[in-house]
Simulated scan of single mutants.
Amino acid sequence: MTRRILPILGVVIALPTLALVAQARVPDLLSAVAEPPELLEGCGDVPEAVALAEELRDRALRIERYMASIDSRKADLMQAETTLRERLAELRALKGAASARRDGDTEAVRGDIDQLIAVYDQMKPAEAAAILTNLPADFAAEILVRVRPETGARIIAAVEPRQAALLTAQMGARSVRNP
């Protein structure tokens, strides 16, 4: 007998549900289930329940305010992050421009030095020696290192021995510093 009652109960419970689904009233059914009953429904005359309900409302308001302040801070942080990313992009662009400018300046200096070396290569050794002895020793050594070896040897031979020794020492020191 119990075997006959279970299917009948299942049909009795399922029929209203199927009727609601057929009428597309499922959202109404779910919203009725999802909506909580009024907090003080039936408890308005109990002071403890009223106090508890008020405290819960106060807490809910504080939580809402706190969440709003978190959202505000989050928006501020996103704005600051955007500003920082833009500034970083600007700084990287400036760094690239400065690097390009520095590379251009370096190339210009190299070109000037190469031209100066070509001039000393074309000079007579005695004339080049007279000029180099009046230059600072490290600068003169740099020129001597860069000219063609034959020209450099003739220039050093034309310099007085004391100055030639100093220039040779400077040339050696330069080679040690810049391997």
Rank of each mutant, 00 (worst) to 15 (best):
Q23P: 04
R25N: 07
V33W: 11
A34C: 04
E35H: 14
P37D: 02
E38P: 08
L40P: 08
E41T: 01
G42W: 02
G44W: 01
G44K: 09
D45F: 05
D45V: 06
D45T: 02
A49E: 08
A49V: 01
E54C: 06
E54R: 01
E55H: 10
E55C: 00
R57T: 03
R59V: 01
R59K: 01
A60D: 10
L61A: 10
I63V: 14
E64L: 15
M67N: 02
S69M: 09
I70Q: 15
A75S: 14
D76M: 11
L77E: 12
A80K: 08
L84D: 02
R85P: 10
E86N: 06
R87A: 06
A89P: 06
A89M: 11
A89W: 06
A93D: 05
A97I: 02
A98F: 09
A98M: 05
S99M: 14
S99F: 10
R101W: 11
R102C: 07
G104P: 03
T106N: 15
T106S: 13
A108C: 01
A108W: 03
V109Q: 07
R110K: 06
D112T: 09
Q115T: 09
A118V: 05
A118T: 05
D121W: 03
Q122W: 08
Q122L: 06
P125R: 05
A126S: 09
E127H: 12
E127Q: 07
A130M: 08
L132I: 06
L132V: 12
L132D: 04
T133G: 13
N134T: 10
N134K: 08
L135W: 10
L135K: 13
